[in-house]
């Protein structure tokens, strides 16, 4: 048996491989941030120039391509309305499904496995396919049947055409996995001991879920909701055929009205403008409004998540 000898430790030297590796990966990170920076700077620089109170509160009654007069109020209203409507559908449905999966279902049951697989698959479905689904199911199936049932003999379809209700429902289906996954994650992070303590005091399962589990999971649920909203706010593909209007003279009045949308408007201004150079200022300003909206939502979600993480780290 050899005797390990304690050789003197050599002085520190530069390891070229190590240096290279750190340099390259660091460079990749910097590059990503630089691209992000360039995009944001470009938009803020050009968009800020046409940013005025009038742009915020102005409508499109005159001409949506008129640089001096047009504003984004109808699009902000439309986007806000469809997003709020969507959260009314998706947050309760997503939270309840997540509660079922974590608190009630046995993790090995067939039903649970199917739901999990379904949710996973749903998350990967391209957004345009949700648009097709919205058209095929909500408008052409549900809407047409509602028309036949509620308003037999009406000349014009009321339900069986694109509408803010159908767009919101389509988006709700699309964002369902976001809410389910975020809620499930925060439910699982709650120590089992808390549930046991509540049950041991004679609380029913429902009482335990309602008074102990859900309040604890609230920040996580909130994050999921906000992420879903921010994802939906910027999506255009699913609402192309389910509710977004190219142009409307007035704000939507009912659930069956179509609506103008910020993201769709960006698309129109980018691709359908009669004179792209002339309308560029309103295009940039509209992009900036949309970005401000989604970034503000994302930032809130990131901050809440960061707080949860620190709290969880402190608990360990």
């Amino acid at each position: 048996m050899s005797n390990p000898v304690f050789n003197p430790i050599p002085p520190r030297r530069l390891d070229p491989v190590s240096l290279c590796f750190t340099g390259l990966t660091g460079l990749a990170t910097v590059l990503i941030l630089a691209i992000l920076g360039v995009i944001l700077a470009n938009i803020v620089y050009h968009g800020g120039a046409n940013f005025s109170w009038g742009f915020f509160t102005g409508g499109t009654a005159q001409d949506m391509f008129d640089v001096g007069k047009s504003g984004v109020l109808p699009m902000i209203a439309g986007t806000a309305a469809r997003v709020i409507l969507m959260s009314l559908f998706v947050i309760p449905a997503g939270v309840i499904t997540a509660v079922y999966l974590t608190e009630y279902a046995r993790s090995s049951s067939l039903h649970t496995r199917i739901i999990r697989g379904a949710v996973n698959n749903l998350a990967g479905v391209p957004s345009i396919v949700f648009g097709l689904f919205g058209l095929g199911f909500f408008i052409n199936f549900l809407g047409q049947r509602l028309d036949a049932w509620l308003l037999p003999g009406a000349a014009e379809p009321v339900w069986g055409k694109p509408a803010i209700l159908w767009a919101s429902l389509t988006l709700a289906v699309m964002t369902l996995p976001v809410v389910i996954v975020a809620t499930e994650e925060s439910l699982r992070a709650i120590p089992q001991g808390l549930r046991e303590a509540s049950l041991a005091l004679g609380a029913t399962k429902l009482q335990t879920v309602w008074r102990i589990v859900l309040p604890q999971a609230l920040p996580g649920i909130l994050t999921g909701g906000i992420l879903a909203i921010s994802r939906a706010a910027g999506e255009v593909a699913p609402i192309l055929f389910t509710g977004a209007a190219y142009y409307m003279a007035r704000l939507p009045q009912s659930l069956t009205d179509q609506f103008m949308d910020l993201g769709y408007h960006v698309f129109i201004l980018s691709t359908q403008s009669p004179n792209i150079d002339k309308t560029r200022p309103i295009l940039y300003a509209t992009v900036m409004v949309l970005l401000l909206l989604t970034f503000a939502l994302n930032l809130v979600a990131i901050l809440i998540r960061a707080r949860i993480r620190t709290r969880m780290r402190a608990a360990h």
């Binding site: 691209i35 992000l36 295009l283």
Partner: peptide
Amino acid sequence: PAVELLAGIPSVVAGFF
């Protein structure tokens, strides 16, 4: 979070850019 902010850019904005 900074890199993840990139995910907050809606695809229509990326298309516009």
